[in-house]
Design a protein around this nucleic acid. Structure first.
Lengths: 147, 147
DNA sequence: GTGATGTTGAGACTGAGTCTCGACAAGAGA
DNA sequence: TCTCTTGTCGAGACTCAGTCTCAACATCAC
């Protein structure tokens, strides 16, 4: 078993069978390093010579989301993408140029959510924050080009 | 012209033609009062005897989003829904029981976003916060039932 | 090694959203 | 009021993400 892959470990710990399609997909997800769509994942699998059915791919993604090791993001374009992450509450910052993602802690958000509860009269059970911008890398490259 | 409808007003102000399908859809959106999916909007139109093509409906929604009078929300289920709103930066709280929505101001979020910029090294250009919970109404009903 | 059962892949299906194209209607200008 | 330009319309075919079903297969506890 590929114990180095946290997705496989999570799968195993939760009592799910560690099958070879799941192992391959977990490796792919880790290797993709950044956000990816379901079809990008399928294409990456095909490139490695894997023959994995669409249903299996979606089932595996669903499972990973359930285990908290993958999260679904909704891009401003309306596209659904997925990203590997640690199974704790956090948010994602996505670079709109290169697609790199970073996880950030909740930090000051809890206070803002409490304000919103007071303001709206709702009891807030869940929230989702997605942030879009430029990563360090792309920022540097952008300022290089600007004289 | 139905100047009472803010969507129509925005359409007109932006120089778009105020056609009868757009007028009908704008009225529907205002009347729906809460979030709705594209197919719910189509169904509501059919119920009123309107004959509006799917393409027209999506085009009108896209236009309303562009004008900032409608916003697209991504529900935790992955479903895309739309909601009428004021054309200023704000966020939505959605009641996960009855579907009622409320707009809330950015409030303390700006500070949290600045923290996240510092923490991640990204320059954040846009963000999206969606909040899910129970509205005043459903909260009251829930506590009524619990003895 | 064996058997129960969880998982797989193929392929049909669904439903949201897009694209194309000829027809139509809003609205500016005469 | 009439005419003409052009933005918008509806129909319908299309695409693509995601779901469902089912027989076959592989995992893993015993």
């Amino acid at each position: 078993m590929d114990a180095a892959n946290p997705i496989i470990r999570a799968l195993d710990a939760a009592g799910y069978r560690v099958t070879s399609p799941r192992r391959s997909l977990a490796d792919l997800v880790i290797d993709l390093d950044g956000h990816f769509t379901a079809s990008e994942l399928a294409a990456a699998g095909r490139q490695r010579g894997l023959r994995i059915g669409r249903a299996t791919l979606f089932r595996a993604l669903e499972l990973m989301i359930e285990l908290g090791v993958v999260e679904r993001l909704d891009m401003p374009s309306g596209e659904h993408t997925y990203v590997a992450c640690a199974p704790a509450h956090h948010h994602h910052v996505v670079c709109s140029r290169c697609g790199r993602t970073a996880e950030v802690a909740d930090a000051g958000l809890a206070g803002a959510v409490r304000d919103i509860e007071r303001q709206s009269g709702f009891r807030i059970d869940a929230h989702r924050l997605e942030l879009f911008g430029l990563c360090r890398h792309c920022l540097a490259r952008a300022s290089d080009k600007r004289p």
